[in-house]
Write a protein that binds this DNA or RNA. Structure first.
Lengths: 120, 120
DNA sequence: CTGTATCCTTGGCGATACTG
DNA sequence: CAGTATCGCCAAGGATACAG
């Protein structure tokens, strides 16, 4: 069977480098995952708890993808209850400013909505 | 009538302010739209040209949504060939740092891939 | 605990055709 | 030129069950 091309994102020409980064933080949960990991290393179940509502499937998918992209590091401690700890790689840490910029804008957006009387 | 919000994002609890901003720049094209508008005001067809591959429908949708969110301003000049110009609002300009942070990370990411010999 | 496999729904997006 | 309307595809994500 011919592997179906995943060219879902219409790939605006690389004129705009946004695309490269958005391909990484573009998912619905990915930015939050990165944000939580930027605060402190976390285990799978901790992340799953923090990101309330995410399914194990998606979380595993995202983490695997982020690991492949070199954004997060996966350290499995093969103790009696096997635990795995995720944390940002040096490359992943470079995303921090961007994430924080987004967070800060998000806060301002919230402020504005409050000030303009829009229900939040 | 309360305008119905399309909750495209599964909405992790507002514990993380990322969500508020990602709801705005989360689409496949939205960040690029904002980026182009942050360079200079543009007309509909210009945007459509810049964002090669975007459909008129989606572009119109995004622009309308961004306008409702107060991110872009729409100025229609009712001349003989009616033209409409879009530009970032003051609020929209606040997104610039975030967008630029993403762009700059995107560039570094590209650099890394080049340096590590990964085909781009 | 840390995932993987399967099924299903949602909605973002493209394509096309049409309007002021 | 600047959109709107309608259709249909398909990847992302949720739910559930299962595995190491």
């Amino acid at each position: 069977m011919i592997p179906r091309r995943k060219n879902r994102v219409p790939a605006p020409p690389d004129a705009c480098p946004l695309t490269a980064c958005m391909a990484i933080i573009g998912g619905a949960w990915t930015p939050n995952i990165i944000w939580y990991l930027s605060q402190a290393p976390r285990r799978f179940s901790e992340l799953k708890y923090d990101l309330q509502g995410i399914s194990a499937k998606v979380l595993a998918e995202r983490l695997k993808r982020l690991e492949q992209d070199g954004i997060v590091l996966r350290a499995s401690v093969a103790t009696s209850p096997p635990t795995v700890e995720y944390r940002l790689s040096p490359l992943g840490l470079e995303l921090k400013p961007a994430i924080e910029a987004i967070v800060s804008v998000g806060e301002r957006l919230k402020q504005m909505k409050v000030n303009s009387g829009v229900a939040v």
